[in-house]
């Protein structure tokens, strides 16, 4: 079996501490270039915050990492995104399997119109899980990890559409956790939520990075600063600055980053 050629340093990092690496990646919708030559390593068991003004290509970056962009007409790319050293766009990659390894949470909570249990069991079922007992276990384990087992255990048969917004979003996270993903992508997961729910989710993410690698598009700079081990500032499709979070938010090296985080534009 042959694999796509991988540059030596990338391989090194893959073996070492880098879970996901974006290499010279450009993304297009038709002729419009929405991401330009992005280089971005995502260290294992860390939270990477990708932030910047709206329309800068952050969502496209996330949707490229699990290839949801495949479903957008006219979307194409140049460059590579390596997951454990292997390009996710390589022709021999099974995209379904990729998405089972790289879960995604969206800005608006999207409970599927079914009950709580079926929502959580959805992923395992799609990958062939039929055994009721192991599904039960997966549901309980995922709800535990999303810190909502206590509030949900008697409501498993209830329609997920009846939950509150915050509960729905935590349910979405539990649903992703049920697949035991290696990477979790979150696209402004708290944009539509009240502060209390936001805090719960942030707490959950900090706990989760022990098992997973997390890429989040935060919904505010404060949230980025609270969560980020590393942070990447993306402006109009270009990566302006990538540094450890505590450095970037206290002493940005680029003038544009500084102007953005101090609220002078965007």
């Amino acid at each position: 079996m042959t694999t796509a050629p991988i540059s030596a340093p990338a391989m090194e990092r893959a073996n070492g501490n880098t879970k996901l690496e974006v290499c010279d990646f450009s993304a297009f919708y038709g002729n419009e270039e929405v991401l330009r030559g992005i280089n971005l390593p995502v260290p294992r068991n860390e939270i990477l915050a990708v932030f910047g003004p709206a329309g800068g290509g952050k969502t496209t970056l996330l949707r490229s990492m699990n290839r949801l962009v495949d479903n957008t007409r006219g979307a194409h790319h140049r460059g590579r995104i390596l997951l454990d050293g292997k390009d996710v766009f390589a022709p021999d990659v099974d995209v379904v399997n990729l998405r089972r390894r790289v879960g995604m949470i969206f800005a608006l909570p999207v409970p599927l119109p079914m009950n709580v249990y079926d929502n959580i069991a959805y992923g395992p079922r799609m990958s062939g899980g039929r055994d009721r007992k192991s599904l039960d276990e997966a549901v309980e384990r995922s709800l535990q990890r999303a810190a909502m087992w206590e509030e949900m255990k008697d409501r498993l048969e209830e329609s997920a559409l009846h939950l509150s917004g915050g509960q729905q979003q935590r349910l979405s996270i539990a649903r992703v956790l049920a697949m035991e993903p290696e990477v979790i992508l979150l696209d402004e997961p708290t944009a539509a939520l009240a502060p209390v729910s936001t805090m719960k989710i942030e707490q959950m993410l900090t706990d989760l990075k022990r098992q997973c690698t997390i890429v989040i598009v935060p919904h505010s700079i404060q949230q980025a600063a609270r969560l980020a081990d590393h942070a990447a500032f993306i402006l109009m499709g270009e990566l302006v600055e990538y540094r450890p979070g505590n450095e970037l938010f206290t002493a940005p090296s680029d003038r544009r980053t500084e102007e953005y985080i101090t609220g002078r534009f965007g």
Binding site: L68, V96, M104, V110, L112, Y122, M126, R175
Partner: peptide
């Protein structure tokens, strides 16, 4: 059928046919 359902279903590792039968057709 709202598009986010499709995103979620694909995001959870459904194949296209699984997405169609579990999310699109029931709705």
């Amino acid at each position: 059928v709202p598009n986010p359902y499709r995103d979620v279903s694909f995001g959870l590792g459904a194949t296209r046919w699984q997405m169609v039968t579990s999310v699109v057709l029931p709705n």
